[in-house]
Amino acid sequence: MPKDYSLLSELADIFKGKAVPAKAEPGEVAIINLVDMTPLGIAYEALRTFAADTKTLSPYLLEAGDVLVASKGTQHKVAVFEGQEFPVVASANITVLRPKEGTNGHYLKFFLDSEEGRRQLKAADHGRAVMNINTKELSSIKIPNIQPVKQSYMAQRYVQGLADYKRKLARANQEWEKIQADIERQLFL
């Protein structure tokens, strides 16, 4: 077990997502809302878009490896952003952690999803009925220092395992749909 720790603010730049009106005209910029963050990652195909000048949005545009933390809402959610071919921002209910050099976004996600990470996130939560994570307290969460090589290894294992899981899940869904279709056909024989 690592004996030394770093503050989250030493490992990542931290900023809030962008407030986008619900009635904004569809456009070329996508926005990740809390509902788009799933246990299997971000549902990129379901993202809502809005029209905006990307130059004015530049401080909010997400980069591959950014970690998204639900800072408002009712559920603990953490996801790692995968680069997309279109500009994407996070909603105002999400706090973005941009890992600094030597820190892997997946490693931050692993920690924040761990029992200890959840405990520290809960301590930074000042909401009553609805979660409201304080950004200043979020930045002072203590994370164990692990060598970048080990962080990368852990991330590679996770990404490969998740890809395998999604592939097996898709195959299981196909088999289940086939069984249901076969049974439905037999109803009308």
Rank of each mutant, 00 (worst) to 15 (best):
M1Q: 10
P2G: 07
P2C: 04
P2W: 04
D4N: 12
Y5F: 15
Y5H: 13
L7R: 11
L8I: 12
L8K: 06
E10Y: 02
E10A: 14
L11F: 09
L11T: 06
A12L: 03
F15N: 05
G17C: 02
K18W: 03
A19W: 11
P21T: 04
P21L: 05
A22R: 15
K23Y: 12
E25F: 00
P26I: 07
G27W: 02
E28Q: 13
A30D: 09
A30R: 15
I31R: 01
I31N: 05
I32P: 05
I32S: 06
V35S: 14
P39N: 11
A43P: 01
Y44V: 10
Y44W: 06
E45C: 01
A46K: 13
L47P: 08
R48T: 11
D53Y: 11
D53S: 12
T54D: 02
K55A: 12
T56F: 09
P59C: 06
L62R: 01
E63K: 03
E63T: 01
G65M: 00
D66M: 04
V67L: 02
L68Y: 05
L68T: 07
S71T: 14
K72R: 15
G73D: 12
Q75V: 14
H76C: 02
H76E: 07
K77G: 04
K77Q: 05
V78C: 10
A79F: 03
V80A: 09
V80P: 03
E82V: 12
G83F: 04
Q84T: 07
E85N: 08
F86T: 09
P87T: 04
P87G: 01
N93C: 04
I94S: 04
T95D: 03
V96Q: 00
L97F: 11
R98A: 06
R98I: 06
P99W: 06
N104E: 15
N104I: 04
H106G: 12
Y107G: 02
L108I: 04
L108A: 03
F110Y: 12
F111G: 01
D113R: 13
E116P: 05
G117D: 00
L121H: 01
K122Y: 10
A123R: 06
A124S: 07
D125M: 01
D125Y: 00
D125R: 00
H126Y: 12
H126L: 14
G127P: 02
G127E: 01
R128Y: 11
R128D: 13
N132I: 07
N134Y: 00
T135L: 15
T135A: 15
K136V: 11
K142R: 15
I143E: 03
P144F: 03
P144Y: 02
P144H: 03
Q151C: 08
Q151A: 08
S152Y: 09
Q156V: 09
R157G: 12
Y158A: 11
V159I: 15
L162P: 05
D164M: 10
L169V: 04
R171V: 14
Q174G: 09
E175K: 10
W176V: 07
K178N: 10
A181N: 13
A181H: 11
A181Y: 13
A181W: 08
I183Y: 14
I183H: 11
R185M: 13
R185I: 09
Q186I: 13
Q186P: 07
F188G: 07
F188W: 10
